[in-house]
């Protein structure tokens, strides 16, 4: 079995905005919401972050947890068997593609699917150099254009030694931290006040990670269809509008 005690420190690395995986260029809909005037200050931002966490954040957390569980199971197989059978590798590819398809089904907006795949591609490029592993190589091979970001995040968390709940927490954190930072940059908000909003959401982040793991157990793909799929129609509208706006500073 793999050593799990590295989980907490690895979680800090994964959730750190300085992880060089392109996260700094994503506003998660905030740039477009500001352009349209639906976010003008701290209070709007608070509501935005709350709703984003309860929808996109929960879905990302659930997918990341499932991916972490799968990644750990596959890595264990690789650890036990020196030479991974080609058949096993094919099975692993199939499982990654199925989980990725579950992410696709939960992402109705093409703009958001493209964003998720771009971010996933950037993260796996970075992760494979930091935490080289056959499991990440398999994932990269299974979805060459980039798996959805939460799937890659979960797989990376597994190879870094995190538990599924920690992967979910990293995903939930990312779902609000990046938009909060973008709002600070775009609206000139007081960064301390905005971090106060994130601090107020901390119990919800824990709750989200817990809820994300509630329907998991044993890396069984049979559970994936039932994972949370909370939609945010406004985020979809914002993403599609943002995609068509040539004057944008952020990727999403």
């Amino acid at each position: 079995m793999r050593e799990r005690s590295a989980g907490e420190a690895a979680l800090l690395l994964l959730a750190d905005s300085r992880l060089p995986a392109g996260g700094h260029a994503h506003s998660g809909g905030v740039e477009e919401a500001i352009r349209l005037g639906t976010i003008t200050g701290r209070d709007d931002l608070a509501g935005f972050l709350r709703g984003r966490l309860a929808t996109a954040g929960l879905v990302a957390a659930a997918l990341a947890a499932a991916a972490c569980e799968l990644g750990a199971a596959l890595a264990d197989v690789e650890d036990m068997e020196e030479d991974v059978e080609e058949e096993d590798a094919d099975d692993a590819c199939r499982l990654w593609r199925r989980l990725d398809a579950e992410a696709d089904a939960r992402t109705a907006s093409p703009a958001l699917r493209e964003t998720a795949r771009t971010q996933g591609r950037l993260l796996i490029r970075t992760a494979r150099r930091i935490w080289p592993s056959a499991m990440l190589d398999t994932l990269a091979r299974a979805v060459p254009d980039g798996a959805h970001h939460p799937v890659v995040l979960g797989a990376t968390a597994a190879v870094a030694g995190c538990e599924p709940r920690q992967a979910a927490l990293a995903a939930a954190h990312g779902s609000v931290a990046a938009p909060a930072t973008a709002a600070v940059r775009l609206l000139g908000l007081d960064p301390v006040a905005v971090h106060g909003l994130l601090a107020a959401l901390a119990p919800d982040l824990d709750g989200t990670a817990h809820a994300a793991c509630a329907s998991l157990g044993g890396a069984r793909s049979v559970e994936w269809p039932g994972l949370p799929a909370h939609a945010a129609p406004a985020l979809d509208l914002l993403a599609e509008g943002h995609r068509r706006n040539p004057l944008r500073l952020f990727v999403s």
């Binding site: 809909g29 919401a33 639906t38 976010i39 709007d44 509501g47 935005f48 972050l49 709350r50 709703g51 984003r52 966490l53 309860a54 929808t55 996109a56 398809a101 579950e102 696709d104 089904a105 939960r106 109705a108 919800d204 269809p225 949370p228 799929a229 909370h230 939609a231 945010a232 129609p233 406004a234 985020l235 914002l238």
Partner: peptide
């Protein structure tokens, strides 16, 4: 048997009510 769309919509909960990310003022 392949997933095309999976969506939960939650209404009337404090987490989503009035959020510009979810329904806005709709």
């Amino acid at each position: 048997d392949r997933p095309l769309l999976r969506q939960d919509l939650v209404v009337g909960r404090p987490s989503v009510e009035g959020s510009p990310a979810v329904y806005g003022h709709a």
